[in-house]
Amino acid sequence: MDLNYTPAELSFHQEVRDFLAENLPDRLSKKVAAGCHLSKAEHEEWHAIVNRKGWLASHWPVEYGGTGWNAIQRFIFEHECALANAPRIIPFGLSMLAPVIIRYGTAAQKKHWLPRLLEGADWWCQGYSEPGSGSDLASVRTTAVRQGDHYIVNGQKTWTTQGHFANMIFCLVRTDLAAKKQQGISFLLVDLSAPGVEMRPIVTLDGEHEVNEVFFTDVRVPVENLVGEENRGWDCAKYLLTYERTGVAGVGHACALLERVKRAALERTQAGVRLIDSPSFAARLAQVEIELEAMKTTNLRVIAAVDGGGVPGAESSMLKVKGTEIRQELTALLRVIQGPYARVMPDANADLSSPMYPGGPTNVQSGTLNYLNQRKLSIYGGSNEIQRNIIAKAMLGL
């Protein structure tokens, strides 16, 4: 494939930059640049701004309200948004569930759920992982037993990101206990306000409430909330996971983080020498930049294959492994730059008027928080160890 941008693509770059310059609230971009968590209202504000432009559903076909963009346009949009420190488009509903509904859902499900996603009427979270069933999703134990026009759901999900913001959850549930692992699973949409649903917070290493555990006790779910065929939910799960793992690579965010590291290393000095000129630091920085450039090319190839009608397989696992490792290394480099300021929160006596790198005291506070938070990148979406097994089996025949 030709990796040079066409004149039309270069023009689209500028169109996206102009949109962001005119519409991205400064207070939101500052919070994103500082590595701070945004509130639900702030995420919804940005979603509404992008939706008014008609750019919210970048992965959807035009007939369902999407942009109809090709792979390069989607890459350009996500890349420019990351460089501008725009809030990310929350993927659970728009980029993960929606493609599943478009491919496997009924006409009625498409008509009902897709417009609500664009309007912001529903906030979705993902119900995949369970205690003991994280990377091995085929071992899920949450059950759904059909009783008339409803399924009765019992079980537990965990590590449910932004579940406390959500009103709906898409779940993998076991509908046939006697079937082989993958053959007895179904894909179900559950209303979190239904009787019998309980959400409990999990506070992560960085002290934030970002994830949760969800309990289901005799929860009644209408049969029409089944996506695809009963006991064939594994098809939906595999299809969704390729989108999740490709997205977890976070190419645009890694590029933005790389620029932040470079700017910071230009200003930080050790013994009178700029840190970016330190041989050991420069070697680490060069290595991660080379890996990022290679990943950008691979990412374009994968999403171009999707545009051609394919579904990313082991390639998405490659992106997931390399993308998460790159972002973790970049957050580690930021902590090196911060030196003694690399702490969760500054001391009461710290001189916050003299920041260690561009961005000021807010970044001093958030550097270690970001580092700790992003330790999870190589675990969720299927741990990197599992991804390497997938690559070994699917691509190397081992």
Rank of each mutant, 00 (worst) to 15 (best):
D2C: 09
L3G: 10
L3V: 14
Y5H: 12
T6E: 13
S11A: 15
S11Y: 05
R17L: 09
L20F: 01
L20D: 02
A21G: 08
L24I: 06
L24S: 02
P25Y: 05
D26G: 11
K31V: 08
V32T: 08
A34Q: 03
S39K: 11
S39H: 09
H43K: 10
W46D: 08
W46I: 03
K53A: 15
G66M: 06
T67H: 00
Q73G: 06
F75W: 04
F77L: 12
H79S: 07
A86V: 04
P87G: 05
S95N: 15
P99W: 06
R103P: 11
G105A: 13
T106K: 04
T106Y: 08
Q109Y: 09
Q109A: 06
H112M: 07
G120S: 05
D122L: 01
W123N: 09
W123Q: 12
S129Q: 12
P131Y: 15
D136H: 13
L137K: 12
L137T: 14
A144L: 08
V145Y: 07
V145L: 03
R146P: 07
G148M: 10
D149A: 13
I152H: 09
K157T: 14
T160D: 10
Q162A: 11
Q162M: 13
M168C: 02
I169Y: 12
K180N: 15
K180G: 12
K181C: 12
Q183S: 15
S186H: 08
F187K: 07
D191Q: 01
G196V: 00
M199S: 10
D206N: 00
D206M: 04
H209S: 13
V211G: 03
E213S: 13
R220F: 01
V221T: 07
E224M: 07
V227L: 05
N231E: 11
W234H: 11
K238S: 14
K238Q: 13
L240A: 14
R245V: 02
L257Y: 03
R260I: 06
R263T: 01
A264Q: 03
A264L: 05
E267V: 06
T269C: 14
G272N: 08
L275D: 04
D277K: 04
F281H: 02
F281P: 06
A282F: 06
V288W: 05
T298M: 09
L300Y: 02
I303T: 15
G310W: 13
V311R: 09
V321E: 01
V321K: 03
R327T: 08
E329S: 09
A342Q: 05
D351L: 10
D351A: 13
S354G: 04
P358V: 03
P358W: 02
G360Q: 11
S366E: 15
S366L: 10
G367F: 07
T368L: 14
L369V: 08
N370S: 14
Y371F: 13
L372A: 15
N373M: 14
R375Y: 05
K376M: 11
K376N: 12
L377H: 03
S378D: 07
I379H: 14
E385W: 08
E385G: 06
I386P: 00
Q387W: 00
Q387V: 08
I391A: 04
A394T: 11
L398S: 10
